[in-house]
Design a protein around this nucleic acid. Structure first.
Lengths: 233, 233
DNA sequence: CGGAGGATTGACCGGTATCAATCACCGTGG
DNA sequence: CCACGGTGATTGATACCGGTCAATCCTCCG
């Protein structure tokens, strides 16, 4: 998973999990299959007995939980390379849903458990991976609890930008595969407020909304200043 | 760590970590020492090189992180029996500070790492423990993002109540070792709003604030209804 | 008894949710 | 190729929750 950037611990967890995810996949895991899901289809539901963990090959998914009153909290978006479904509980602790068309690798839990029981090094990799998720969740928590709606949207954009940079893509041209509702449910704000925030950033001349799914960052430094942090590092 | 209750995954993680914490302490760890801290003194700082994990014997601590603008986000309160400082990173990812006088066991990281490398079962225990912390953090995230201030305070009280029940103490008589500021910084609201929420619950006849540090729950069912959940289960 | 830190209560204001109307984009079918 | 319909996005008007400032109260200790 990735890490929202507006915090003091910087992007350590992102890189770290990236490496961890890779080593998990490089391990001698057997029975891995590949599977495709159409847009909006669930990969697994919160509460379901856990049978597999998944590695995103192509597309994007949303990880979320529903509150009793029907409100939805997105914890993260899973993008290619990410592993979702980790955690020691025997049931999935949140729902994973395809945003667009998605292809995933299914890693059987039995296979994962066997390897972890045999190889303490692999078990420690799982420990690392979940530690990173914990870190990312705390960062999101900081973003939600301590920033207003405009700042949250900026943090979201900068996070995507940083992800792009780490994948060798253009950090100033962002693709938003998710809807405004998905973004709002991640940031804890309404779709209208997401929209208003993007419009405000456009009027400030900091971004350009080319299409609803494509955002060009014009003034990266300005965005960083909005969340109280300069870019030079 | 404990788990805020207003969610669908129930209290699984709480019990689970309770057990995990115990088994971690029962393990053959060497070099454990005991240490005392006075009120408001730091146990460790965010960013410090990690040398030990700590088990609370007596008293209470706050786990928090500071935002750039000086705002503080409390992630959790550590109460007797809890283990704090876990996580695969080589630096503490948040600050731990004594609320009142505190006594802790210091478990050297070197000892922990050696055992984890030798014994995959112990490594998996660490995996479980951090998974539970992740779960608790997600629950807090749900509370912050999806509940108003009154509901957050109710969730906080019900969490303490459940903790009491699990420790064999009276679930209707709550001790609040932390200040209103600590509570507010956990729930993302101001001290005035914490105070107003408690007063409102008192006027509703649902609680009685005996002293500022002691709350009697009168109508547990009513509190549960406020957060959209009945008690009968 | 007095001082200090913490808690409570009130008044006011701003940010954001909500409701509502319109717009933009895109796939479908004529 | 264009008209049309549906979904999602944008923009505006309004109400209200909760932050902030300020005054007072409470409790614990010296």
């Amino acid at each position: 998973m990735h890490t929202l950037v507006a915090n003091t611990s910087e992007n350590g967890s992102l890189k770290q999990l990236g490496r961890t995810a890779e080593s998990i996949c490089e391990a001698k895991l057997i029975g891995i299959t590949s599977k495709a899901f159409a847009a909006k289809h669930p990969i697994f539901f919160e509460g379901d007995a856990k049978s597999c963990v998944y590695r995103i090959e192509k597309g994007a998914i949303a990880l979320y939980r529903m509150a009793i009153d029907g409100k939805r909290q997105v914890f993260d978006f899973g993008l290619p390379g990410d592993i979702v479904g980790l955690g020691a509980a025997d049931a999935y602790s949140c729902t994973a849903q395809a945003i667009g068309a998605v292809r995933v690798q299914c890693i059987p839990l039995s296979s994962l458990n066997r390897l972890a029981a045999e190889d303490s090094g692999f078990a420690l990799k799982l420990y690392q991976a979940v530690s990173s998720e914990l870190e990312a969740t705390r960062n999101l928590l900081m973003a939600l609890a301590r920033h207003n709606s405009l700042e949250r949207v900026v943090i979201f954009l900068l996070t995507l930008s940083r992800r792009n940079a780490l994948h060798g893509k253009n950090p100033s041209l962002l693709t938003l595969p998710m809807t405004r509702l998905d973004i709002g449910d991640l940031l804890g704000i309404s779709i209208e407020t997401v929209s208003r925030s993007l419009s405000k950033l456009r009027k400030f001349g900091m971004i350009d909304v080319i299409r609803t799914t494509t955002v060009q960052i014009i003034d990266l430094n300005g965005l960083n200043l909005l969340i109280g942090r300069a870019t030079y590092h």
